[in-house]
Amino acid sequence: MDTSLFSQALSQEPLLQVQNMSRFYGERIGCRNVSFQLWPGEILGIVGESGSGKSTLLRCLAALDQPSEGEIQLADGGQWLDVPALPEPKRRALMRRAWGIVHQNPRDGLRMGVSAGGNIGERLMDAGERNYGEIRRVARDWLARVEIDPDRIDDLPRHFSGGMQQRLQIARVLVSEPRLVFMDEPTGGLDVSVQAKLLDLLRALVRDMGIAAVIVTHDLAVARLLTDRLMVMKDGVVIEQGLTDQVLDDPQHAYTQLLTSAVLV
């Protein structure tokens, strides 16, 4: 068990507070009555089968969708921001500054017609960086950190393998040093060997930088490797949550027991 997590939790305020959040689509329930807190540097996993509401929840958290009910609050400079109620310009500014989203399909997160260096540099330029040499230096540095040859800085992502594209997307998101990253099945669609490497890389990066993350996955092995805490969802509702090892080794809910027994983790 990670004791540093507890000392962090004791010494700090949570970064994100979610209370009784629901999202309905007409009659249909996307997710219902979700509550949790996320601390700085903590990695929260959301697991469940497809259709369990985990992607809906992530979309609401990442402000890509509006919750129907409940609260999402983000700590920002000593105050709580009511994220869904923020005016759009403020929310977008916040998203650029404090947030990152890693999509399952790197094509959704990258500009495929822009070079690797341009992809990494965009958020720096968004934030006002106007020195070409400095942008190149940081982009090369980040390519190396995600284990892409820095000499490929001027290549287009379409000439990269799937795993490289995903690592490039991660560099593009992390370059602006966000406090909070949302990831939707970040290793989905990759070969198993590539997945493992990517997971190692992600874990190291997120730990090094002290970034908090919310990761949606249907893969319990991914959850085990990456996350500190776990929420299990079924039919739009959180049925169990706790420390990852606890949930996976000693599941309380019958459904979680079924999930964990189906996969060797």
Binding site: A93, S115, G121, M125, R130, I135
Partner: peptide
């Protein structure tokens, strides 16, 4: 129109960056 409203001009700078890189 949204990009102007939110002053999201990074992409324009990316275009200049790409030119210089090429």
């Amino acid at each position: 129109r949204n990009m102007h409203a939110w002053e999201e001009y990074g992409l324009m700078q990316v275009r200049l960056y790409e030119d210089i890189a090429r």
